[in-house]
């Protein structure tokens, strides 16, 4: 039943964002991350925040669902903010014993917090609206130019898609082997760290043996189906840019321009 786990956190919905070419989404995510470092004033944050919010609304992914995915990262976020509040020097606005809070500290913490928050939301928006398969093919097609500098793009993409297929299977298998060894008296819960690590040998050996056996059989099956690398290979679902993808690229360019220009203007006004 572990097979139900989906890698990443794809949220199925019918939206323009879901239908966009994965290459567009990859580029957009990358540029959005870069844009975080292009502005220095709160106006920049406001623009980035408004744009991000707009995309979220269009994507039809509930905001609550996105926050769920943030659970594990809250800690990091708060940690960074606290770190910034207390360790930035400058104009002191509050002092108690050895604790000093400065104006700069507060604004730094707020900026860092927003920046991190935007980064995470921005990139999870990509994984939420793109299946791992689309991502893989997006990377394969989008990075094809790298073949010229001898990066095995096709092979890496093939490895990723095979991993996507087999990780759930191997997870289920791990669960089964662990249970089988527990049935022979193995104990994974008690004992010192050293003993617990030792207890995993009977799990990992069969798991590796099985993974190799599977790899072997899969390789044979792939060859039997005439797989011979990238040369002369076609695709059932080749990526083709549509109108909406062109428009997205334009909007993306507009966004970057807006960020840079307003940042300059605001800085000049201050």
């Amino acid at each position: 039943m572990l097979r139900d786990i989906t890698l990443g956190q794809y949220y199925p919905a019918d939206s323009v964002i879901h239908r966009l070419d994965p290459r567009v989404k990859l580029t957009a995510t990358l540029l959005f991350i870069v844009s975080m470092f292009l502005f220095h004033t709160f106006v920049g944050y406001a623009i980035a925040g408004i744009c991000l919010a707009a995309v979220i609304v269009v994507s039809k992914v509930p905001f609550r669902f996105m926050m769920k995915g943030l659970k594990t990262i809250w800690f990091l976020l708060i940690f960074t903010m606290v770190f910034n509040i207390f360790l930035t020097g400058g104009t002191v606005i509050f002092e108690w014993k050895f604790i000093k809070i400065t104006e700069e500290g507060l604004s730094n913490a707020a900026f860092m917090g927003f920046r991190l928050f935007f980064l995470i939301i921005g990139s999870s928006l990509m994984t939420l609206t793109t299946t791992p398969n689309q991502l893989t093919s997006g990377m394969e097609t989008g990075l094809r130019w790298m073949k010229k500098i001898h990066v095995p793009v096709h092979e890496i993409a093939m490895m990723m898609s095979i991993a996507l297929r087999f990780i759930p299977i191997l997870m289920e298998e791990t669960d089964r082997i662990m249970k089988a060894q527990q049935a022979r008296g193995a104990d994974f819960e008690e004992g010192k760290l050293k003993d617990r690590i030792k207890a995993l040998v009977p799990v990992f050996v069969p798991l590796f043996v099985s993974a190799f056996r599977r790899a072997n059989e899969l390789a044979m099956a792939m060859e039997a189906r005439c797989y011979r690398g990238d040369d002369g290979r076609t695709s059932m679902k080749p990526l083709k840019y549509k109108r909406r993808d062109g428009i997205s690229y334009l909007l993306l360019a507009a966004y970057i321009a807006l960020i840079i220009v307003t940042d300059k203007v605001v800085l000049a006004l201050l």
Partner: peptide
């Protein structure tokens, strides 16, 4: 339950995959 597992022996399907 650890002792129980020695009293109620369970052989899984394809048990050869647990040999190590």
């Amino acid at each position: 339950r650890k002792e129980l597992r020695t009293k109620v022996g369970l052989v899984f399907q394809y048990p050869e995959y647990q040999l190590f």
